[in-house]
Amino acid sequence: MAKTVLLIEDEPNITEAMRFILQRDGWSVSIHADGATALDAVDRVRPDVVVLDVMLPNRSGFLILRDIRAARQTRDLPVLMLTAKGQEKDRALAESYGVSHFMTKPFSNQEILARLQELTQP
């Protein structure tokens, strides 16, 4: 059974590129673009892994991560964070909230696939 990845990202072009490479790699891909309702999407989709952007409309990715870690069902859910800001303090902030892996844009397709595999290994 294919593993599910929830992609929380608002840039349409990036979403499209990731959907393509993830599906090609055998993932079941769910996409959500709004920050405010991202947690509902997590509850609904119950993904195996989440790819989370930082700069999202209406709500920051950091706050979403914090809430994911605060809820009992999603406490151990692997979350890979992506950001275009790429500053050190953003990485530190993400790690303090308990991110599983932190990557800056632009990324290598191969690398992101490898990371997702890693994060979903039993």
């Binding site: 840039e11 090609r24 275009a84």
Partner: peptide
């Protein structure tokens, strides 16, 4: 700087990602 970074990296992310897809040709 953060904004510039974001504004530059976002299109570059699409460009890199899609160009890798095109290079794979798969």
């Amino acid at each position: 700087l953060s904004q510039i970074s974001h504004e530059l990296r976002t299109p570059m992310t699409s460009i890199r990602s899609f160009s890798e897809i095109l290079l794979d040709g798969d």
